[in-house]
C-alpha cells in the first residue's frame, strides 16, 4: 500500500545535497539534484554499515554513471535509484517514490 504525504516545500530543499525527513517514524534522506531527471531522490537515512542515521549528510555524485551518495561515516556509496551499496551488494537501503508537484515535495511510503 503506498500512501502519499507532503513533506516540505521546494524551498526547503538544498541544491545538490541532502536533507532528512521523518515520515511515520521512518527516516528518509531526500536529495535535490536540479540538473538531473528526475530531480528528487529518496532513500533510507540509516547507514547499514556505519550504523547511524546519516546518509542525508553525505556527498552526492556519480560513479560509473550511477547517481550515488557517499556515506559520511565510512564513505561507501549507495545508489540513489536502487539503494544498492556499490562496495557491498549484499547491503541495500530502501528507496522511496518522491516527486515535486506545485512546489511541494510528495513522498510515497
Amino acid at each position: 500500500m503506498s500512501q502519499a504525504t507532503t513533506i516540505c516545500e521546494q524551498q526547503d530543499l538544498i541544491i545538490n545535497s541532502g536533507i532528512c525527513a521523518n515520515v511515520e517514524g521512518q527516516q528518509i534522506a531526500l536529495f535535490y539534484l536540479p540538473k538531473e531527471t528526475p530531480q528528487l531522490y529518496a532513500i533510507g537515512n540509516w547507514d547499514p554499515i556505519g550504523k547511524a542515521n546519516v546518509l542525508s549528510r553525505g556527498i552526492v555524485g556519480d560513479i560509473n554513471q550511477r547517481l550515488v551518495v557517499a556515506s559520511p561515516l565510512y564513505k561507501q556509496h549507495f545508489d540513489l535509484v536502487t539503494g544498492e551499496c556499490l562496495e557491498d551488494s549484499a547491503c541495500t537501503v530502501p528507496v522511496y517514490a518522491v516527486e515535486l508537484v506545485d512546489n511541494k515535495v510528495i513522498l510515497s511510503l
Binding site: I14, I15, N16, S17, G50, K51, A52, N53, V54, R57, G58, I59, V60, P72, L73
Partner: peptide, 18 residues
C-alpha cells in the same frame, strides 16, 4: 555547499552515532 564533506558542511566532526 554540495562540495563539502559532512564535517565541513556542519562545521563539526561527525562521531560514530551521527
Amino acid at each position: 555547499v554540495g562540495l563539502q564533506d559532512t564535517n565541513d558542511t556542519f562545521l563539526a566532526n561527525m562521531q560514530k552515532n551521527g
